[in-house]
Amino acid sequence: MNRYLRYSIPLFIFAIIAAFLFKGLGLNPREIPSPLIGKPIPEFSLPTVENAETIVNKVDLNGKVYLLNVWATWCVSCRAEHETLVRLSRSGKVDIVGLNWKDERDKAQAWLRQLGDPYTINIFDKKGRTAIDLGVYGAPETFLVDSKGIIHYKHAGPMTMTLFNETLLPMIEDLKHKG
């Protein structure tokens, strides 16, 4: 009995390593925990996509729970998620604020005319400086922000209905109850 036990040790070690590797297969290396969860969104002062003269500041966004969606016309996944964003905005469950990242203004405007505009406010970050303050490393990225401007969740990658209904919606309703 003792001998069988000893011979099964390599098998046991193999099983542990295999379990870790198998778990690793399912992990997404793009999901990097954001240090900004629980912190306020950064200060900024930027024009909108629609109008270079209209300046938006951080405080202009306060007062409502909203999704902050980082997008660009050069980003293919943004096009993939756009329909979902339009559906979400029509459902009226949450406001979506856009952060247009390192893009051309006329291209962004054409995109919104063509595919629909889900954004209540669309911030134009041509240089990508505010995106750096938000720790953005790819598009699309979506943040859940409460009425006081505190970030509660970050998703890197396209928004999906499943993600919204299962993860974001419960958080949004919770935040709305808290005021």
């Binding site: 990097i32 240090p35 900004l36």
Partner: peptide, 8 residues
């Protein structure tokens, strides 16, 4: 850098 992108 760490305050924006984390220890990663």
């Amino acid at each position: 850098m760490v305050s924006r992108y984390g220890d990663f």
